[in-house]
Design a protein around this nucleic acid. Structure first.
Lengths: 194, 194
DNA sequence: CGACCATACGGAGACACTCTCCGTCTTGTC
DNA sequence: GACAAGACGGAGAGTGTCTCCGTATGGTCG
């Protein structure tokens, strides 16, 4: 019953290679960003290009596997926010910040994530879909409490977090920008007319 | 006195090629986005790759030249907003919308623009710098009228417009998203606690 | 008008990256 | 220990960037 879809257990050398590639990829993408050369990554892992591509047919597949390792962490933060916060607006805020951190795990990550939101064929699409749904839940709660605008939608908010994460990478040089950009999303630039 | 820096007037065939390349590039980027193949663009323009790269040493240089042709339009909108609007918040809003339209002139344009904001070596950097300054002017006016939060800065607002433009390209499928994302920047998702 | 030089032109080719294909080698089983 | 099933590696095809240099052209001056 441990095998719902697969035929048989993978060969041990294959399994070892797979995890080893993931280890190296984690470091490699951290250092070079998500657009780093995959052939170079394969070489660094000491495997042939064919092996890399057999395990992970595309860059997105590799990223999805890498992000899967972070799933626990993000789900944990979701639950922590959910149970600790009574104010649904603060909860939503906490969730969005967790999302922002997740989306900047590697340099350039927001790009494939954004693409995945619209192209459901990507291995990242499933991952994103889940988090869009979570965002929707937090948002709905905040809206029902009258703490969030009712014309905002979960998917847009998720995309907006990606957008801010995307631009944050460029604004790093400026120390004050990251926080400023984040709060822009919550409050906007405008002041309500007295 | 018409030549402040250059030595002599360019050869006529060179000038003709330059404008012809720009014409074709305008169409080409509109159709294929800013990441389209430059060699293919050269072929479509009926010139060798060398000619293309001599006139425009990099993709950014080509984009900068293309955007320069839109300068008049954007400056006109700036002036129109400036003179027509008495409310500085509405003026800022109008300017940001003009910027957003400008930043989506071609698919994928926000990417090089964002890079140009931080890398002052890009030919696009000068262009961006000017518009950041304009954004700052509108913002300062709105702040002095108490219509914009005082902790927001011009550069961040400019970057935020790029960010929304960036994500808007992905959200196109969903009809309501573009407008929703834009207003998010002005108002934020939060409702002030009664 | 013809010659001459500065300048521009074209496209072959060096280099980088992605991804596939297939001959060879390993693993696990009988 | 032998035999599939499956994994491995890396050569190579396809695509894109950008440079280099032999050739062609435009503009000028005698």
């Amino acid at each position: 019953m441990s095998e719902t879809t697969a035929g048989r257990r993978p060969r041990t050398d294959a399994a070892r290679n797979r995890t080893h590639i993931l280890d190296v990829a984690e470091r490699y993408f951290t250092e070079h960003g998500v657009t780093g050369s995959l052939d170079a990554l394969a070489k660094q892992a000491g495997v042939g290009a064919g092996t890399l591509y057999r395990h992970f047919p595309s860059r997105d597949a590799l990223l999805a596997a890498l992000l899967a390792a972070r799933d626990n962490e993000l789900v944990a933060r979701r639950d922590a926010v959910r149970t600790a916060e009574t104010d649904p607006a603060v909860a939503l805020d906490g969730w969005l910040e967790a999302l922002g951190t997740w989306a900047t795990a590697f340099d350039g990550l927001p790009d494939p994530l954004r693409a995945a939101v619209t192209e459901q064929t990507s291995p990242l699409a499933l991952t994103c879909q889940g988090y869009v749904t979570t965002t929707e839940e937090f948002l709905t709660a905040a809206q029902q409490a009258g703490r969030a605008r009712s014309d905002v939608r979960g998917r847009d908010l998720f995309l907006a977090v990606l957008a801010i994460s995307w631009v944050r990478e460029a604004a790093m040089a400026d120390a004050a920008s990251p926080a400023g950009l984040g709060s822009l999303l919550r409050t906007g630039w405008a002041t309500p007319p007295a």
